[in-house]
Design a protein around this nucleic acid. Structure first.
Length: 811
DNA sequence: CGTACTAGTCTTTTT
DNA sequence: GACTAGTACG
């Protein structure tokens, strides 16, 4: 009995097929990691391949770590020689060794999104680009897309010929790369691009890697972009032992440049490729799989396949719709609490998945109230926090004096009385002498224009120099400790009045712990390597498997994971699929969104609950959403439709909730002009907030003043709580109202009173600022305002309140 | 030069 | 609602 006997036929085929190109189409939960690890073992044990000649590439450190662990377990001796790592880490490793061949210093730093933006801002300023018209983000996005497609600044410029905006971006792209080179820095995309350039320009280097990495395996192949494809292609060109594993149905990173054609066209690029399908699922119940299959079937561009399991039907999927997002969160927390109390499941077996990070807040609140241990994955990356970035900038400055971004970040932290004017003069000097900013600082006494300020720069330079000197005998730990002490960073926080000072200090402690852990795990811990590792961590990497907490994360982060109990929250048109997708005219986007739904559903092993809310706050506005079309794509017989537990009020009453009342009115009343608001707003909070905040306070107090406008009497019924709550709805009413077809769209409406009958009628053509033109289908007199249903030409049908839709008749 | 307040933007997803 | 960049003022 060998380890391979436990594999099914297709899995065996994938393991035994060691030579030549292989495409493994691995459905969700079909045991692809198992196949990969067994394949590595097979290569070593049975084929006599040296571990040294094998490489497995993943996307996240977490995936790489897990793969490594499993390989170690099953291969045993020699497994450490197998190269298991992420695309980005692999590239860094290669570039550290050879990037001097491209005229870079091997001691480069890696810029994160934040640093990129800093660079971009400076460039835009210098090139006098109106960032209101052309935003930094947009430019960076364009540059990133270009790099993902392996388009150089020069090519970009050629392609842009004739287009004013594109030409401008081309100029910025060129300049951006110049600055990066000057700073001896690479961004995430550069890591890949430069590696490919290196291979193209230096055949000897490429060949050495081809010789070494004779057996290549790529995980999550559906998410590779064009550069990654090229990288793999080059490496595999000599021995052609390339095995890629992926699932086109789980391709969810198109927005980041992933090219689904890489997997769909694999057989075109490698006509001799062996294609193996893994369709048996070992994870979920048949009900869950059926749901997933039905949803994904609505996609056109995919390779047909159907997952099956011998696990049995399992329990039905649960679906619940709530009035508010808060109730939704309450329910999820309550359910998890209940299950845990019953002893059926533990916290660690539960995960709540949502579309956007912002949705975690409400859930967190309820989890705290319910006393449920949880962990949120994502949001603001730990290493992106201000205090952490500050300290890292010190480390970077000590490590690489050419990183101007890092130096400028900390030159006045803590306050040294060095302002913008001084920095600008030093920069001029640096430019004039073609030296780095830091080197210019060292010659501060030579800079005539800064005068007395030179004396302020000196202590900073001294500090850095002395730290560099200490590097000889300092460990990383001592270095960081020294920086914290001499800068008084933590001390300043301790004395500060800031509300979050405490959590910042905790973060710094955490950084210290990470440094200590790093030194423990790496015998020859170097500053550069630490910084590099830190630059490449993803949110998901920090999730420990064994701490028995409920995990909250986005659907994207959840890819590759599995949980017994899965909750998909916010299943609403406008949230998921996102508003952007619904309004986009690119059909592919909806397909990608549907794949995301597929990923979400297939995370569940035993139990899947889908929830949504009729109303929720999004960016300070109340949205009314209909049930997600994806829920509608799941056959009803797979679900139960029990009515919500929470007592429900009638639709008209929403604004009566004091909570939503204020928010409900903020926007609308803002449009009345701020003067009235200030007249009534002598509230204490006025100092903190804008007039809008003070206004909402005013209403809570019930003092609706005449300032609001003559259309509303003081005893406006809308402000009196309705005494009678409508009884709970019948089962029939509680059935979700599905949105059918692509055209139907939820009514994203801003609530609001005031305003008479609109000047348009049913069947009139109207124009909306955001949604464009459409035809009025219905006008209803609601409690607060006229509700208008408009069928837009491009944006679908929307129900909106007349006063705020600001619709204009077009004829 | 530093602070305090305001206005604007954002968010769909991230190595 | 949350955060950030920009501006006015001391």
């Amino acid at each position: 009995m060998s380890i391979y006997d436990t594999l099914n036929e297709q899995q065996k085929e994938a393991v035994y097929r060691t030579e030549g190109p292989v495409l493994i189409l691995a459905g969700a939960g079909s045991g692809k990691t198992r196949v990969l690890t067994h394949r590595i073992a097979y290569l070593i044990d049975r084929c006599g391949v040296s571990p040294w000649n094998i490489m497995a590439i993943t996307f996240t450190n977490k995936a790489a770590g897990e793969m490594r662990e499993r390989v170690d377990k099953i291969v045993g001796h020699g497994s450490e020689s197998v190269w298991v790592s992420t695309f980005h880490s692999s590239c860094v490793r290669i570039l550290r060794r050879y990037i001097d061949r491209l005229g870079f210093d091997n001691h480069f730093t890696i810029y994160d999104t934040d640093d990129q933006k800093t660079v971009m801002k400076e460039i835009c300023k210098r090139l006098q680009i109106d960032t209101k018209m052309l935003k930094e983000r947009t430019i960076l996005g364009a540059i990133s897309s270009a790099k993902n497609e392996f388009i150089s600044p020069l090519e970009f410029a050629v392609n842009a010929a004739g287009d004013l905006v594109q030409t401008k971006i081309a100029t910025v792209y060129t300049e951006y790369q110049n600055v990066m080179r000057k700073n001896n820095a690479l961004d995430f995309d550069d890591l890949l691009v430069k590696t490919v350039e290196l291979f193209q320009n230096c055949p000897d280097v490429l060949e050495s890697y081809q010789e070494r990495l004779r057996y290549l395996m790529v995980d999550e192949y559906q998410d590779t972009n064009t550069v990654q494809f090229e990288l793999i292609r080059l490496l595999a060109a000599k021995y052609r032992n390339l095995c890629v594993v992926g699932d086109d149905d789980q391709s969810i990173y198109k927005f980041r440049g992933a090219n689904i054609r890489n997997i769909l066209d694999f057989e075109k690029v490698y006509p001799d490729a062996k294609v193996i399908r893994l369709e048996q699922n070992y994870r979920s119940t048949q009900n869950v799989l059926d749901a997933a299959n039905h949803v994904i079937r609505n996609n056109k561009s995919r390779k047909e396949k159907t997952l099956w399991t011998d696990k049995g039907a399992g329990s039905p999927l649960h679906f619940k719709q709530f009035d508010t997002a808060c109730e939704e969160a309450q329910f999820i927390a309550g359910e998890i609490r209940r299950k845990q109390a019953e002893g059926t499941v533990d916290f660690g077996q539960c995960a709540v998945l949502y579309r956007t990070n912002a949705q975690s807040r409400l859930l967190e609140e309820q989890f705290v109230l319910a006393g449920i241990p949880y962990q949120v994955v994502g949001g603001v990356n730990f290493y992106a926090r201000r205090e952490i970035k500050d300290l890292l900038a010190y480390l970077k400055t000590v490590d690489n004096g050419r990183d101007d971004v890092a130096v400028k970040r900390i030159i006045n932290i803590p306050k040294r009385g060095i302002g913008a004017a001084t920095i600008a003069r030093v920069q001029e000097y640096a430019d004039a002498h073609a030296i780095s900013f830091y080197d210019a600082l060292r010659e501060a006494d030579q800079i005539a224009s800064i005068g007395r300020s030179a004396s302020k720069l000196e202590p900073f330079v001294m500090l850095i120099q002395s730290l560099r000197g200490k590097l000889e005998y300092y460990g990383l730990q001592e270095l960081l400790r020294d920086i914290i002490d001499t800068t008084g960073y933590v001390k300043a926080l301790e004395e500060s009045e800031e509300e979050d000072a405490e959590s910042r200090i905790e973060n710094i402690d955490e950084l210290m712990n990470k440094v200590i852990a790093y030194e423990e795990n790496h015998e020859e811990a170097s500053l550069s390597e630490f910084l590099e590792e830190v630059a490449l961590v993803a949110d998901i990497d920090g999730v420990a498997a064994d701490n028995n907490r409920v995990l909250l994360m986005t659907l994207h982060s959840a890819k590759g994971l599995e949980y017994s109990q899965v909750y998909l929250a916010g299943m609403e048109d406008g949230i998921f699929p996102s508003y952007m997708t619904i309004t986009s005219d690119d059909v592919e986007e909806m397909e990608e969104e549907r794949r995301l739904a597929y990923v979400g559903i297939t995370r569940a092993k035993d139990d899947l609950t889908l929830t949504c809310a009729r109303s929720r706050m999004v960016r300070g506005e109340t949205q009314y959403n209909m049930v997600s079309r994806f829920v509608g794509e799941i056959p009803e017989e797979l679900m139960d439709h029990r009515p919500p537990v929470v007592k429900r009020r009638s639709w008209e009453e929403y604004p009566q909730d004091t909570g939503s009342l204020n928010r409900f009115r903020e926007k609308p009343f803002g449009s009345f002009g701020s003067r009235q608001a200030e007249a009534g707003g002598r509230n204490a909070e006025a100092g903190r907030g804008t007039g809008i905040n003070s206004r909402s306070h005013m209403y809570t107090a019930g003092s609706l003043s005449a300032g609001i406008g003559s259309t509303r009497p003081a005893n406006d019924p809308r402000l009196r709580p309705k005494a009678v709550l409508t009884p709970q709805r019948t089962e029939e009413e509680n059935r979700p109202f599905f949105t059918k077809g692509a055209g139907a769209l939820s009514g994203i409406s801003k609530g609001a009173p005031a305003g008479g009958r609109p000047d348009y009628e049913v069947n009139d053509r109207v124009r909306h600022v955001k949604y464009g033109e459409g035809i009025v289908r219905k006008i209803e007199e609601g409690a607060r305002d006229y509700q208008v249903t408009v069928e837009f030409d491009r944006a679908g049908t929307k129900v909106m309140y007349a006063a705020f839709a600001k619709l204009k008749k077009t004829e």
